[in-house]
């Protein structure tokens, strides 16, 4: 039984179907990447897992329990925590306060909290230096570390990350992904959504490629990295069609020039 099992979920925004029957699985201690272009449905997937969006059909099971309709704050308590896109840290609170909120559900177990906080500070020494500073004044990379640190505080068994490399320098992006990889090695499952395909595939165990709300490819990360189709899916996946269609178009245009095409 996998730790996370998503089965054929459909999610709508108004009339727009953002996820059209998506299924994925994540095992304990595994790092899984979800790749895809903007608007493919990556963020919606993570939001649905976290209970911020509701699937109209299909099911989400975590640790063998159905969480399709569970409230977002309860899902965190079960051990699934998300690092949202754009970090979404609490900018008007200090670094230490942000971390304290990560431990909100354990707020009566100060001893344990202190230990977890020390682990976070060990992982991200920069955060320890800035603990009294307002989070809004941190640099982009530090904010990302805080967002991850805050999620670590909730004691997750599955941590999902939405575009952790967004807006970071390649160097920093790589560093963040490697840290995340280490979580998986320590037994925390990781589901990471990335646009930066190459880097994500370099550290993940497995990967899915998402296109317009559906999984179009899946497999071991190393296989996918070598796969030509991944490049295509990442690049939009329509180069082939373009070439074919363009060829046909040119044939046609010779005979029947389009009325709107000409200038």
């Amino acid at each position: 039984m996998a730790l996370l099992e998503v089965d054929d979920i459909h999610v709508f925004y108004g009339n727009i179907e953002a996820l059209r029957g998506l299924s994925i699985q994540v095992d304990g201690g595994e790092m899984v990447a979800v790749l895809g272009s903007n608007g493919a449905g990556k963020t919606t997937t993570l939001r649905t897992l976290s209970g911020l969006e509701r699937a109209r059909a299909g099911s989400v099971r975590f640790d063998d329990q159905d969480i399709t309709r569970t409230a977002a704050h309860e899902i965190v308590g079960r051990g699934l925590c998300q690092v949202p896109e754009g970090r979404r840290i609490f900018t008007t609170l200090t670094v230490a306060e942000n971390l304290a909120l990560g431990g909100y559900l354990m707020r009566n177990r100060q001893q344990e909290l202190r230990q977890r906080r020390d682990v976070v500070y060990e992982t991200f020494p920069r955060l320890a230096e800035r603990r009294g500073q307002l989070a809004g004044t941190l640099s982009g990379g530090e904010q990302q570390m805080l967002a991850i640190g805050r999620a670590l505080m909730t004691q997750p068994r599955l941590i999902t990350l939405d575009e952790p490399s967004l807006g970071l320098s390649p160097l920093l992006a790589r560093a963040i992904l490697k840290i995340v990889r280490r979580f998986a090695d320590e037994g925390v499952a990781v589901l990471v959504v990335e646009q930066n395909a190459r880097q994500a595939l370099a550290v993940a165990d497995r990967a899915y490629v998402l296109e317009t709300g559906r999984i179009v490819l899946e497999g071991a990360a190393s296989d996918l990295a070598a796969d030509e189709r991944v490049q295509k899916a990442y690049l939009g996946g329509f180069e082939q069609i373009v070439e074919e269609e363009e060829g046909r178009e040119k044939e046609k245009e010779k005979e029947d020039p389009s009325p709107l095409g000409g200038g």
């Binding site: 976290s50 209970g51 911020l52 409230a71 977002a72 704050h73 309860e74 965190v76 308590g77 925590c81 998300q82 949202p84 979404r88 840290i89 609490f90 900018t91 008007t92 609170l93 306060e97 304290a100 909120l101 990560g102 431990g103 909100y104 559900l105 707020r107 805050r150 999620a151 909730t154």
Partner: peptide
């Protein structure tokens, strides 16, 4: 207090607060 901090966090971002396990 942590609860008070949670209250101030709500002033910034409801969804992020939910993701911390806060019952908004």
């Amino acid at each position: 207090t942590t609860l008070g901090t949670a209250m101030r966090a709500l002033a910034v971002d409801h969804d992020a607060a939910r993701l911390m396990g806060i019952n908004v």
